[in-house]
Design a binder for these strands. Structure first.
Lengths: 219, 219
DNA sequence: ATCTGCGCGACTGTCAACAGTTGGTCTGTC
DNA sequence: GACAGACCAACTGTTGACAGTCGCGCAGAT
């Protein structure tokens, strides 16, 4: 029986707060909870089957992530994005990811990094057959990996706190427009630029990618 | 009695959660709560005279800001920064603020922006006589203003979520080292670069400023 | 002396209830 | 019919209490 006990399959005992957080994040970024919707604590806690206190903790986190906004008298509602805000979000995203690309260029041995990024691109390629959502996940995973590989935890954390906003932007613009940005070749260009080790070039490639992406979404 | 009722003096009715948030943030960034200190909910709620539920909401927010970190079994403790993390924080900060500088360069009419930034520098100059903390506040205010003037709310929000980490970095390095970065002239250089409207130059000025600042803190 | 249970104290996860405020509605009066 | 004022329902802010779990120390067996 040693094999079973060593598997540790049931290691992740997530708290109710984390489950609620994930559920709400998903509901908002998929549009199940429409922008502008007023989030009533009592209703939500009932539908999620958790207490208000636990729910409130999760909502604070979502508020900090920018997915929900506070109105007068503490009323929380699903944030609504307009075209300018999407452009602003992608400008910040471009700044963060170009830093990531530049930091990766500074690494002496980039072989492992390049391999990991190629793996992420391959996953994007595979996802093309699986539908829209998997493609979006694969795309976000590529960019998240870009940040993670730098080893700069602050950078990764900042990017992740933007991730919800990015997902909302995609949802707002519509999935059809969003998939235009999932082109494999353009992502391969990013990896190639990093491989050369030219910081300025890599950063500029990212900025161009993001500028085009924002244009695709709102233009 | 119209005068009194119109004064709106008591407009800011801050919730206990916000007060707790401010108090904790201050205690951590001033070192009153040393890095690594385990934050026991029952103790803190008693010393702050609030209930645990309210305290927990504030702690979630601090956790997202990166001021406190979660250990095993949900234990929260004051985050500890090492030299690498400070460099990482300042690299992200540089990326955000150079975006701010670049966006400000794109404005057709920069007169108002330049004036506001000169005002912030003048405040730094005044603060030189007032001691260490006011100088730090004036410095942070300058950089926050830089982000705010872009009108990019996401950028401002990202910067502010980094602000706590910046304050921790300053505390960690010691106030004597930190004030080396408060030089008025070097900040004036930033404003001058923005005034020329040269995006690349302005961004590079910021990056150099931040690189030097990080070096001053940990070098 | 070392190891194995066993309690016990300490803390976090979670919940249900109370209090205060705001906005709407309904009624009575002019 | 319009307006003023008083109820009333709906929410959020805040609290105290209960439950589960982890780590530690102590006693007893080998």
């Amino acid at each position: 029986m040693a094999a079973e006990t060593l598997s540790l399959a049931g290691l992740e005992k997530t708290s109710l707060r984390q489950q609620a957080l994930a559920a709400l994040r998903r509901a908002i970024t998929t549009g199940e909870l429409a922008p502008g919707t007023h989030l009533v604590e009592t209703e939500l806690s009932e539908s999620l089957q958790i207490s208000r206190g636990t729910l409130r903790e999760a909502m604070r986190q979502l508020q900090q992530e920018g997915l929900i906004a506070a109105g007068p008298r503490g009323r929380l509602s699903v944030r609504h994005l307009d075209a300018k805000e999407i452009r602003d979000i992608f400008a910040v995203r471009a700044a963060l990811e170009s830093l990531a690309a530049a930091q990766l260029c500074e690494l002496a041995d980039r072989a492992g990094v390049i391999a990991a990024l190629h793996g992420a691109i391959a996953a994007m390629d595979d996802a093309e057959r699986d539908g829209l959502e998997p493609r979006i996940e694969a795309d976000l995973n590529f960019h998240r990996t870009l940040c993670r590989l730098t080893g700069n935890e602050t950078l990764l954390h900042s990017w992740q706190s933007l991730e919800g906003n990015i997902r909302m932007s995609i949802m707002f613009a519509g999935l059809e427009r969003a998939v235009r940005n999932m082109d494999v070749k353009r992502h391969a260009d990013i990896v190639d630029a990093i491989e050369t080790g030219d910081k300025a070039k890599a950063a500029e490639t990212i900025r161009a990618h993001m500028s085009g992406a924002a244009q695709n979404l709102v233009g």
